[in-house]
Structures are given as structure tokens and as C-alpha cells.
Amino acid sequence: MSSTVQAAATGHDDSHDLVPEDKHFGQATGGKIAMWMFIAQDGMSFGGLLFAYGVLRASAADWPVPSDVLGIPLTAAATFLLICSSLTMVFAVEAAKERNQAALVRMLGLTILGGATFLGIQVYEYYHLVHAGIGFSTSTFAGEDLNNLFGTTFYAVTGFHGLHVLSGVIYLICILRGAMAGKYTEGGISWSPVELVGLFWHFVDLVWILVFTFIYLL
């Protein structure tokens, strides 16, 4: 049920909860503007890491073909899983805006499950890579020495992203607790925190799309 229909049905006018129109930012809340600023600076952090990866790779005389060492099909499946969790996240935001608490809790739960599974796949991948000889500072694979920076850059970039996924999952669990208490389906702009966690989660997905291409496929 939409907020308008719900408001009409209950006689509750939630218009006082809406954010006033701003000349520059429309009806974006302060939290939303702050989240976008955080995302922009965090994006630059990832950009710096990927740029350093590119410089080290370009200047290396011998750099292994990533697809020879890394498991592309498994990581592609993890990438698809993260995309699926982005879809459930936008559905969660829609559910919050429509004051559908059951759907909100269900979609947040699925998003958390997707993120946790992604982390599980990453731990599984790390475990196998370390046992294959690719450490953080030394790299060997199938009995051959690899450029040590391969492992260093791989773990630095994917580990930094993995920490973001972990933060996102914890953030989502906090939001899920509020959703179960009905905090984000009260009307007005009570859904705003769900939108904010959604922005962070989509950012994590967006960055992985680039990391997957630059680190695994190229």
C-alpha cells in the first residue's frame, strides 16, 4: 500500500515529515547528501588502490595472466550473487516506501544472505590461493615463482573490498533489527535509513564490478 493511500486510510497526514525542497539538492535528506560524499571519497580510495595496481602491473617485467591463477567461474558466480543482492536491496527500499514491513524484512534478509555468501566465497578463495602458494608478500604457483606483487596487490584490493562487504553486512543487520521493530515503515521519510544502507550496498556492488574486471579478467 502506498504512503498516500495508507495516509488516506488511516487519516494520518505525514506531510510534515517530508524534507523541504532545496534549490540545489531537491528533496535529498542531509543523510543522503552525507552518504554520497562518503561514497565519493571512498570511491577515490578504491581508485587510488586500482591505480597503484595498474602502475605496478604495467611496470612489472613478468606478470601472471590472472585467469591462469585465479578461479574466474567461481568469482563470476560471486559477482552475480552481489548483483542479485543489489536487486533485493532496491526491492527492500521499495517495500519500505510502501510501508510493507514483511517484504522489507524479507528483502533485507536476502540481501544479508547474499553478502554473507559472497564473503564465504572470498574466504574459500583465499584459503585455496594461500595453500597454492600465493601469499601476501611471496607468490608461487604450480611450482613456479610469480611476481611477488601479484599476491600483494590482489589481497590489498580484494581485501579492502571484502572489508566493505563485511561493513555492509553489519550495517544491514543493524537496519534489519530496526525494520523488524517497524521503525522504517511508519510513513513520512522513515524509510530514509533503508535508502542510505542501500546506497552503500550498491556502491560495494559497483566497485566489485570494476575490481572483477581489472584484477580477475584483464
Binding site: 560524499m37 565519493a40 581508485g47 591505480f51 595498474g54 584483464l218
Partner: peptide
């Protein structure tokens, strides 16, 4: 605000 880090992406593509 969202477009700000895009230049980093182009820098990465150029270095690749």
C-alpha cells in the same frame, strides 16, 4: 558529487 571519483576510473583504464 557522485561523478567526482570517475576521473580515477579513467586513470586506471589508461594505465591498463
Amino acid at each position: 558529487i557522485a561523478y567526482m571519483p570517475i576521473y580515477m576510473g579513467f586513470a586506471v583504464i589508461i594505465i591498463m
